[in-house]
């Protein structure tokens, strides 16, 4: 039996790319549709990371070349490391800046933290001003 390896490679690669594009599209629609900042944020980080990763892997499977594979592994590594850190930084800033939460959000266990933040706020602002003067 004769299997056309090129063809199999193209099929696998197409499947990866289409799945990635689907997740990317879902993330974009979610960015427009979801009700508040935090739900959008948590849908975007996952959707964009997975979608982009799958597109890049698909192209890597198609090229099947060592040099390009190394570059693609580097892209994957950087996104997996950096995207959750960026999401975390943005969410913390949002909490600090009091971006409103969706009305259905349950904040029972978070009350504690919010109250503390309220008390500490003056302190934090003093600190920030000191830092900005020093720089």
């Amino acid at each position: 039996m004769d299997i056309d390896l090129e063809f199999v490679k193209e099929i696998i690669s197409s499947a990866f790319i289409l799945a990635g594009v689907f997740f990317m599209l879902v993330a974009s629609i979610g960015l427009l549709r979801l009700p508040d900042f935090y739900t959008r944020m948590s849908a975007i980080t996952k959707g964009a990371t997975l979608g982009m990763g799958m597109i890049v892997i698909g192209i890597g499977v198609y090229f099947n070349d060592t040099e390009i594979m190394l570059k693609i592994l580097a892209i994957l590594f950087f996104t997996l490391i950096t995207s959750p850190v960026a999401a975390h930084a943005i969410t913390r800033t949002a909490i600090y800046k009091k971006v409103p939460l969706w009305k259905k959000t349950d904040l029972k266990e978070f009350q504690n933290y919010l109250q503390k933040r309220e008390l500490d706020k003056d302190e934090v602002e003093d600190q920030l001003q000191k830092n900005s003067k020093r720089l």
Partner: peptide, 9 residues
């Protein structure tokens, strides 16, 4: 929407 968001500790 089926979601029911909450912040937990």
């Amino acid at each position: 929407y089926f979601m029911n968001p909450s912040i937990i500790a």
